[in-house]
Nucleic acid binder design. Structure first.
Lengths: 177, 177
DNA sequence: CCCATATTGTAAGTATACTGTCAATCGGCA
DNA sequence: TGCCGATTGACAGTATACTTACAATATGGG
């Protein structure tokens, strides 16, 4: 009697169903990202800031005088993408870009007064959005998911096109003007 | 002695650190999505298909003769976004769009021979990509994460701008030509 | 049967998120 | 010191992902 496991026969591939999409981690990550952005934008609609713009503001606040390349490493964005984000934040007068005196290539980033105020005021809305994303889960499950996700993102850091390099942010200290 | 919890004093907000970004679920979802796309594209580079295009191919294969609006509900994409995706798949000759006889507004979608072959051949690469995304976790943790994520996406379905409506796919049966 | 209302695909506009490429500039090494 | 390779910000090009708007078409109620 031919045992199924004896020799790897050129067996028929399984039929393709929607499960090939619905149960794939990649699909779930994409869906969850869509949902997260949607919730964020809704909660923060009064501030007209996207999640990406918020992250950039926080990073510039935390690292005043950082340049665009280092900023991209600190929040794990592509340098090209970040260029546009910075432009929009500048046109909304939330940040300033001033040329460095020591390196004529770089432009140093600072929050404006308006930027600091917006950042301070948006925090509670952001917090509400973050809570809402996980709300449907039981509290213990929220912790579990967050822990596993943190772990997975960290361990997969190098697989990303733009790995997070939080340490890079420190390099600009001591240089700047 | 003034108890901290007695009356909601106008207390100082906590200082803003990068943790306001790094520990936020929304940020982790975005990072994980970046990583997932990166791994998918890498594993499937031989096929020149994006994750979104792959999902569309599977759905059209599973629901031959579906129209664009119903397709968007089945894979939870925006209708506008899907228009461009369909265009690209058509220009690669992986799908066909033919006008319906009963409703002059709709265009019915079918895989071409080439599309069916690409879909069949890409499956193993897709599978490898999905495995790689979760690889860094222990097997038990992979199951936990996947279960929680599936649950969360499902429970948050309505929070998304384009909720998944898998049942919609059935409506086109019995109508079509 | 006719018209108000809804649906369908498409298009324009904005915002990520990448890939390249490029000129200006910088830094280290011969 | 002078040049070569690396870095920096900018730009062009592609692909999601959303918004609003619109014309063509369908449908149901009066």
């Amino acid at each position: 009697m031919p045992r199924r496991t004896s020799k790897p026969m050129p067996s028929k591939p399984p039929p393709i169903t929607m499960d090939a999409v619905y149960t794939a981690p990649g699909y779930l990550f994409r869906r969850m990202q869509q949902i997260a952005v949607s919730i964020f934008v809704e909660e923060c609609s009064a501030f007209d800031l996207t999640p990406v713009q918020y992250a950039a503001l926080v990073a510039i606040h935390t690292h005043p005088g950082i340049d665009a390349t280092r900023l991209s490493a600190v929040i794990a964005f592509d340098r090209s993408t970040l260029g546009n984000v910075i432009e929009r934040l500048e046109s909304k007068a939330l940040i300033e870009r001033k040329p460095s005196r020591e390196d004529k290539r770089v432009k140093l980033l600072h929050l404006t007064k308006a930027g600091a105020i917006v950042l301070r005021d948006i925090m509670s809305s952001v917090e509400r959005a973050q809570v809402r994303m996980l709300q449907p889960l039981k509290p213990a499950d929220r912790k579990t998911l967050l822990a596993l996700l943190t772990q997975l993102v960290d361990l997969n850091n190098e697989a990303s096109r733009v790995p997070l390099r939080a340490e890079d942010a420190l390099e600009h200290l001591g240089k700047s003007n």
